[in-house]
């Protein structure tokens, strides 16, 4: 195991971090919209959210990526590797995050929502300014957890042609025939990234305002 090999692993881990970070944030935005749809009175919106969530939670991510990469071109949509990976990971994590958030939204004290209505908030205003921040605050630990899961799941994007940490490790193991030191190093890099994510998560949680009691 030479320094050059380790450096290649570190470089590849940047791709892992990039796709995971973008997907987590994009997934969070989509998840908020999905939650709104899920809780809406409109049957079509609600139905869409339910089907979306069951599809992206129910179909393995590997299969989703293969479908986006290889089935969409027959419909005239040919996405490059990076776009496929970002879309696949974002939609998948959005489905999980939407369910996490639902727990948060349901936990918002009804008194708070009623107070907001009394104060003249519209339903939409109350959703974005009262319920969403509280739901996000309540489900923040679950978000950090999801970030860690996605970081590890991102190893699947090599199936659409991106070289991330796991794929680079496989490539190097296959050309040097020294699988043990290489996979051990890759494992250490994943661990290091996730320890940092968990640490930042705890710091952020402490910095966030506490929950209103009602």
């Amino acid at each position: 195991m030479t320094w050059t090999l380790f450096e290649l692993l570190l470089q590849a881990s940047l791709m892992t971090i990039l796709v995971s970070a973008v997907s987590i944030l994009a997934g969070l935005a989509i998840a908020i919209v999905l939650s709104a749809m899920r809780m809406s009175g409109n049957a079509a919106l609600k139905g869409f959210a339910v089907v979306f969530i069951s599809f992206f939670r129910g179909v393995p991510l590997l299969v989703q990526l293969l479908l986006i990469f290889n089935l969409l071109p027959s419909l005239g949509i040919t996405l490059p590797s990076l776009a496929t990976a970002l879309i696949g990971l974002s939609l998948c994590t959005a489905a999980y995050q939407a369910e996490n958030l639902r727990g948060g939204f349901e936990g918002v004290a009804p008194g708070l929502i009623e107070s907001a209505e009394m104060a003249g908030f519209t339903r939409a205003q109350s959703f974005f300014w009262i319920r969403t921040p509280i739901a996000l605050r309540m489900t923040f630990p679950a978000l950090v957890n999801e970030a860690i899961l996605i970081l590890k799941a991102s190893s699947l994007v090599s199936v659409v042609g991106l070289i991330e940490l796991t794929k680079m490790a496989q490539n190097l193991a296959a050309s040097t025939y020294q699988p043990l030191p290489i996979f051990a190093s890759a494992g250490l890099i994943y661990l290091a990234i996730n320890v940092v994510v968990a640490f930042l998560g705890r710091r952020a949680e402490r910095a966030l305002p506490g929950l209103p009691s009602a």
């Binding site: 590997l62 293969l66 990469f69 290889n70 089935l71 071109p73 027959s74 040919t78 590797s81 090599s158 199936v159 659409v160 042609g161 070289i163 794929k167």
Partner: peptide
């Protein structure tokens, strides 16, 4: 060159990638 995991290679060929 389009380098993929082997799992994705033959499906990619059939999809015209």
């Amino acid at each position: 060159w389009i380098t993929l995991d082997w799992t994705g290679v033959l499906p990619g060929l059939e999809a015209g990638r």
